[in-house]
Computed example of a mutant assay.
Amino acid sequence: MKKAWSAPMLQTEVFEANEYIAACYTGVCDISGEVFLDSNGNGVYDRGIDSRKYYNEACGQQYSITGQDSVMPAKNAFVVDWFGNATPVWNFDDYHVTTTLTQNERPNHS
Rank of each mutant, 00 (worst) to 15 (best):
M1S: 14
M1Y: 08
K2W: 00
K3T: 15
W5V: 05
A7E: 04
P8D: 05
M9W: 02
M9K: 13
L10Q: 12
L10A: 08
Q11E: 03
Q11A: 02
T12V: 07
E13W: 12
F15N: 10
F15C: 03
F15L: 04
F15I: 01
N18P: 07
N18H: 13
N18Y: 12
E19G: 15
Y20G: 06
Y20F: 05
I21G: 11
I21E: 14
A23H: 15
A23G: 10
T26V: 11
G27N: 06
V28M: 02
C29R: 05
C29A: 15
D30N: 12
D30V: 05
I31Y: 02
S32R: 06
G33H: 01
E34P: 01
V35S: 07
V35Y: 01
F36I: 04
F36N: 05
L37W: 12
G41A: 06
G41N: 12
N42K: 09
G43S: 11
G43D: 12
G43T: 09
V44Q: 15
V44A: 13
V44H: 11
Y45F: 13
R47T: 04
I49S: 10
I49F: 09
D50Q: 03
D50I: 07
D50V: 01
R52T: 00
R52F: 14
R52D: 01
K53E: 09
K53L: 09
K53P: 03
Y54T: 10
E57Y: 00
Q61E: 07
Q62W: 07
Y63K: 05
Y63C: 10
S64A: 13
S64G: 06
I65M: 15
Q68N: 02
Q68E: 08
D69A: 11
S70V: 15
S70R: 15
V71I: 05
V71N: 03
P73W: 10
P73C: 14
A74T: 11
N76W: 10
N76A: 12
D81L: 04
G84D: 11
G84L: 10
N85L: 03
A86F: 02
A86K: 04
V89S: 06
V89F: 00
N91F: 01
N91K: 04
N91R: 07
F92D: 08
F92V: 03
D93F: 00
Y95N: 13
Y95E: 14
V97F: 04
V97D: 07
V97M: 08
V97S: 14
T98A: 15
T98Q: 01
T99M: 04
T99A: 01
T99I: 02
L101N: 02
L101E: 00
L101Y: 03
L101P: 02
T102Y: 15
Q103K: 14
N104W: 11
N104Q: 15
N104T: 14
N104Y: 13
E105S: 08
E105T: 11
